[in-house]
Amino acid sequence: MSLTAHIPSHRKPRRSAPKSALRAGVAGGVLSTIAVAGAAGPAQAEPVTQTIEMPTLTSGLSTAVAASAEATQQVALDLETQAQEDAAATSAAKAATKAKAEAVRKAEAKKKAEAAAKAKAEAALRASRSEARTTLSTSSTSGSTAVASSSSSATGSAASVVAFVQAQVGDAYVSGGTGPNSWDCSGLVQAAFRTVGVDLPRVSQAQSTAGTQVSLSNLQPGDILYWGGAGSAYHVGVYVGGGQFVGAQNPSTGVVLRPLSYDPPSGAVRVL
């Protein structure tokens, strides 16, 4: 007895014939099917491949991008224009404010200058009046016998006219002035005669023919002196005696007392 007689064999038992036949049949069927499929394959139609062309978006996309870029550029331009307009408006407002302030400053300076000039003129006028009245007073008290005797020789209404015009010596000359502190030539003469109830014409032309014409060598206090022709006189005054007259001469001298030789008259009329 061999040593391996009792060791079981490890080989697989052979398959039975029915199972082998079944498997062979199945394999044969599969092969037959493949063969049939292979034979029938070439007769079948080939699959159709269809190419679908997608719409091209490049053109529309470019247009949209261009429109968007143009819109963005326009917005930027609008913003820049608005910024420039705002800056210009701000600059104009600042300039207007500055100009207004400068105008106000100049107006105030002009007003101050005018006030100073007015004050200076008034001071000069007061000084001139004071000087004229001082001169008149000194002349009267220092022996101006001719004037004193002539004034004393004037009586009644003539004396009142002479006293009135002498009281205005030193007042200002103003064209069209009728008092009480500024006169023109005919305004002074008219006001003097009005104190005695005589209503003379307003202008020198008419005053030069308002009375009886008298010779310059036969003057009396209270006579009206005129310069120019009778009826066309350009200046008038009042003879106060002693070879002197009072008249509102011009803006630089005002109302003055002067000898006839200072400005010889053309003629005279007597009203009183």
Rank of each mutant, 00 (worst) to 15 (best):
S2M: 02
H6M: 12
I7Q: 01
P8K: 07
S9T: 12
K12W: 12
R14S: 14
S16D: 13
P18L: 12
S20L: 13
S20K: 11
A21Y: 07
A24K: 10
A24G: 14
G28P: 08
G29N: 05
L31D: 04
I34A: 14
I34Q: 09
A35C: 07
V36Y: 11
G38F: 02
A39M: 11
A43N: 11
A43W: 12
Q44W: 09
A45Y: 05
E46K: 13
V48C: 03
T49S: 08
P55R: 11
T56K: 13
T58W: 09
T58Y: 07
G60T: 13
T63Q: 12
A66Q: 07
A69R: 04
A69V: 10
A71C: 04
T72F: 06
V75L: 14
L79Q: 03
T81H: 00
T81P: 01
A83R: 02
A83C: 01
Q84R: 10
A87Q: 04
A89V: 05
S91V: 03
A92D: 08
T97F: 00
A99G: 09
A103M: 08
R105W: 01
K106A: 15
K106H: 11
E108C: 07
A109Y: 05
K110G: 11
K110M: 13
K112I: 10
E114T: 14
E114D: 15
A115V: 10
A116C: 08
K118C: 01
A119V: 07
A123K: 08
R126F: 03
R126I: 09
S130E: 12
A132H: 00
A132F: 02
R133H: 00
L136A: 14
S137D: 10
S144N: 15
A146P: 05
V147N: 07
S149W: 05
S150F: 07
S152I: 02
T155V: 14
G156I: 01
G156M: 08
A158D: 01
A167I: 02
Q168P: 04
V169A: 11
V169Y: 05
A172H: 01
T178F: 03
S182F: 02
G187P: 09
Q190S: 12
A192R: 03
F193A: 03
V198W: 00
L200A: 05
R202L: 02
Q207W: 06
T209V: 14
A210W: 04
Q213H: 15
Q213G: 14
L216S: 08
S217V: 06
S217Y: 05
L219I: 07
G222H: 03
I224G: 06
I224E: 00
L225V: 09
W227R: 06
G228Q: 08
G229C: 06
A230M: 06
G231W: 11
Y234G: 15
H235K: 00
V236K: 05
V238G: 05
G242K: 07
G247V: 00
G247L: 03
A248W: 00
S252G: 05
G254K: 00
L257Y: 03
R258V: 12
S261G: 14
Y262D: 15
D263M: 06
D263G: 09
G267C: 11
A268M: 05
R270T: 06
V271Q: 08
